[in-house]
């Protein structure tokens, strides 16, 4: 009996999640010792997905007909399917294009959409869970190396992987004073006190609505959290959960509303999952 087969694919993605695998360096050697990397677009030359594999990592969301086909093929051939990264599990930053109809998108970038020899674009970006059953998720844009290794290790042992359930504030080293600024601040405005909670100082830091596990790395370099890991268990929609929390402390953020700005702040990685999505698909003007 050979080693269990691992398949990795990239749908509408930027290879950032695959880079996490590559960046494992020596640990990638170890992984290659435990599994047979049967198909991986960046790492192997094998063109076809094998008929049967144990674990599949899918990076990327669904934007084209080709993405749909690959996602379905992987689901049918692989025992355990893991949504690898925020595009696969949430739609990711490409999901921000969902506020704009496909006609306008293609017109603004290409004129007429290319249609020879390339797969057709679908009206919106979707997370893979919209199309196939997903067994587990490794969150993040990109995921944490250690979490990726831990999830794979658990799966290889036949155990269910577990993700942390707290929020980023739990890991953040900034000081909270519980006094909230009444003015909102943008990223280009230098913080008065980099040691103090950025949300309190008026920045839209998604920490409260974001799953922990990243060691609040961005906060360590004085950059507010973007929410790339999505929400923790129990909060179905990250953006609405953050809106919920913010409404209690930051009324000024409600002023000067614009969908473009709001979605980039509250739903930067999760807009494709927003429940009202199929209204967005009608290409309603904003």
């Amino acid at each position: 009996m050979g080693k269990p087969k691992l398949v990795t694919v990239g749908l509408t993605s930027d290879a950032g999640c695959h880079m996490v695998l590559v960046n494992l360096h020596e640990a990638l050697f170890d992984l290659a010792g435990q599994v047979e990397i049967a198909h991986s677009y960046l790492l192997t030359d094998e063109k076809a997905i094998p008929g049967r594999a144990e674990i599949a990592l899918i990076e990327g969301g669904v934007r084209t007909t080709h993405d749909e086909e690959v996602a379905k093929e992987v689901r049918s051939k692989c025992k355990t399917v893991v949504a690898f990264g925020s595009c696969a599990s949430l739609g990711g930053i490409p999901g921000l294009a969902n506020t704009i109809g496909l006609q306008e998108l293609s017109h603004s970038v290409y004129g007429a959409l290319p249609n020879v020899g390339v797969p057709a674009a679908l009206p919106t970006v979707r997370p893979i869970s919209d199309l196939i059953r997903v067994d587990y998720v490794i969150p993040g844009c990109p995921p944490e190396a250690s979490e990726t290794v831990a999830v794979l290790a658990a799966l290889l042992k036949g155990e269910a992987p577990r993700l942390p359930v707290k929020n980023v504030c739990y890991e953040c080293g900034k000081q909270q004073t519980r006094a909230y600024s009444s003015a909102s601040r943008r990223l280009h405005e230098r913080a008065a006190d980099p040691q103090r909670c950025l949300l309190e100082q008026g920045y839209l830091c998604m920490g409260p609505a974001t799953r922990s596990g990243c060691r609040a790395r961005c906060l360590e370099v004085n950059i507010p959290c973007e929410g790339c890991r999505g929400s923790s268990d129990g909060a179905e929609d990250q953006g609405l959960a953050m809106m919920d929390a913010l409404a209690t402390v930051a009324y000024p953020l409600v002023e000067n509303y614009s969908l473009a700005r709001d979605s980039a702040a509250l739903h930067r990685f999760t807009l494709a999952r927003l429940r009202a999505n199929h209204v967005l698909r009608r290409g309603e003007p904003q």
């Binding site: 934007r63 993405d67 490409p94 921000l96 294009a97 970038v109 674009a121 969908l259 473009a260 700005r261």
Partner: peptide, 15 residues
């Protein structure tokens, strides 16, 4: 065949 993600358009309106 890399999927189009329309970055140039989705940047519009963003800070």
């Amino acid at each position: 065949v890399e999927s189009p993600r329309f970055f140039e358009r989705l940047l519009v309106g963003k800070p």
